[in-house]
Design a protein around this nucleic acid. Structure first.
Lengths: 336, 336
DNA sequence: GTTGGCACTCTCCCCAAGCGAGTGCTAACA
DNA sequence: TGTTAGCACTCGCTTGGGGAGAGTGCCAAC
């Protein structure tokens, strides 16, 4: 691929991203002055099509980029946008309200982000059950009720109200609390070994009580790992000309309503930069006419969730990638 | 309005709900045998139109019900569906998974409900900060950190990790806990009077500690009241012929994305039966081509949230109302 | 008060023609 | 050998008209 072909491809992609209309040889020649006539451009375009970088919707229409073309653009052509220059008016607002939990923060953030791009924003937040146990507390509430409180070093605080099948003896409760702390502190909540738990159960002087509490802890450890996904700016999809067709739109919304696929898409990674999946590169068939840009944010250096931006393949990659990287950094800071 | 007019109106509404097409005099006469000819029906329809119960999309089309017509139908014509008969395959599944918090439950429930109706389901859950304080616990975590745990009789457990500006003295912490319990237990979390809090602050021996904890409590009481709304079956709207027009659909989704309006719509009421708002009866202009059926569910007898079902004005009111009342009862039971 | 008949209106669908955009090819040119 | 102008051709989109179908309103008869 020689220099001029690259210029032609670049021009076609730029124009198509801006207009969503197939671009013809004349436009390329005039608007992006390459110094050659439309006829020459036509020859180049013919070659590019043969190589699979662009395609013709109909025989008498202009060309539009193919997935392969976009891939080439993202990897080699695109000028990376400087986050610094684009920062004004694009950064997330400094968090300054009352802290109302990570879920609330992420939900609001996803909606705010969606106002700044024309695409749909999805943010996953991984369960935080992977921290080390820092504190275990058994709080007596009533003779039949105990509150179990677990705190991990990732800042997770988890609690469960436990309805006992028989009243507890206060002394036993304190004993049990001590035992639990001795045996379990410093371990990962999601990796409590059954052997260890069995040992505690056996050593305990009030077996039933220990049994009930340990069962609850196992439940908690299973539950705290689960992720959630928040979506903002679904409506932005409606402004995209490629989704004027209801069936396509429906497909996308179907995908967004189904949590499993979304979670798979937004699984946190170790890498924190922006990653792009273009059209058919997406594993989920429902969104193979879309592109997804993702970036993982961290909490205290550990992957904690992923931001995803879903738009048509004709999305503005340079801007989107710059923004998502900026946002991932900002979220990491806010949440750490 | 005489009996035959009522029959004609009833027939028109039934047919329109089923087909979404304007119904003509011949159809009314033949399909819903009233024993009179189309010409007679035409006269009746002419009257009904004059009175505003039905309307003509074009001069040469059949009639469709107006908002007023639907209102009359809901109030007087409709045969109420027996919940008993419709129960098979329509009830919510018995909750039997791990309990993962009310939010999760409501989200899943909204999606399940949406599978059983062809409309969009919205469920609000009111903050549960309106219960009476049953237990206050200050858990030492580290010399600089305290965990504040509040439990109310509505089953709410709320906690906050507090970063102190100076280390606490263990004895003072216990003292303070006792004071707080003595003064505040039995009071409503959302109605802690400033005077009372000031008094505690003054009596405390370690002022700064008390101050920080009380400030946190005020925050918690403010935050726990806030509501959230879950939406399921947004996609169902796509199957409704009246929303094949993108601009209408867009309007509705705009409404659903904007939380304030939704919350207003789904404010819990004291009354637990189904309430219908038809078309222009809705205060929000964005959904004035829709109808909304709502019913409030209770937790231990107190209004806790509202289920809403949003569909075209041509919705199947009898079925929807029967279902929502059933579901509100079931949710109340599960959550109590 | 009810009915049949009839003229009238209006929408929807289909089809054909015309327009416009853009290509591919060929021949000429530097 | 690469570039350019010219030209015929293709194809989608729009426009306009005609016909079919559905349903009404009105009138006269029962």
């Amino acid at each position: 691929m020689d220099e001029r072909k690259r210029q032609v491809l670049h021009a076609i992609i730029k124009d198509y991203i801006a207009t969503a209309e197939p671009v013809g040889s004349r436009v390329v020649s005039k608007k992006y002055d390459l110094g050659v006539s439309p006829a020459t451009i036509r020859n180049e375009m013919s070659d590019l099509e043969e190589q699979g970088y662009i395609e013709q919707p109909h025989i008498s229409a202009g060309r539009k980029p193919s997935d392969k073309g976009y891939r080439y653009y993202v990897d080699r052509l695109m000028e990376k946008e400087e986050v610094g220059t684009s920062q004004a008016g694009r950064a997330l607002p400094q968090f300054n309200g009352h802290w109302q939990g990570i879920g609330k923060y992420i939900r609001q953030t996803s909606q705010y982000m969606a106002q700044l791009v024309d695409y749909t924003v999805m943010i996953s937040s991984q369960g935080q059950g992977k921290g080390l146990l820092q504190k275990i507390q058994l709080v007596p509430v009533s003779p039949w009720q105990i509150l179990l409180v677990l705190i991990t070093d990732t800042g997770l605080v988890s609690h469960r109200l436990l309805q006992l099948s028989q009243p507890y003896e206060p002394i036993r409760l304190i004993e049990l609390e001590t035992t639990l702390e001795k045996k379990l502190l410093g371990r990962r909540l999601d990796q409590l070994s059954p052997a260890l738990l069995a040992q505690i159960r056996n050593e305990s002087k009030q077996r039933l009580l220990a049994e009930e509490i340990l069962a609850l802890m196992e439940k908690v450890s299973a539950q705290e790992q689960d992720e959630q996904v928040y979506i903002g700016g679904l409506m932005n999809m409606f402004s995209q000309p490629e989704f004027r067709d209801m069936t396509k739109l429906k497909q996308i919304i179907e995908f967004l309503e189904e949590e499993a696929g979304l979670r798979e898409l937004l699984k946190p990674r170790d890498f924190s930069g922006a990653i792009v999946a273009i059209g058919r590169e997406n594993p989920a068939p429902d969104i193979q006419e879309c592109s997804v840009v993702t970036a993982t944010y961290m909490i205290r250096g550990k992957p904690a969730g992923t931001i995803g931006i879903l738009g048509p393949t004709r999305m503005s990659y340079a801007k989107t990638m710059a923004l998502i990287e900026l946002w991932a950094r900002e979220m990491s800071e806010t949440l750490s």
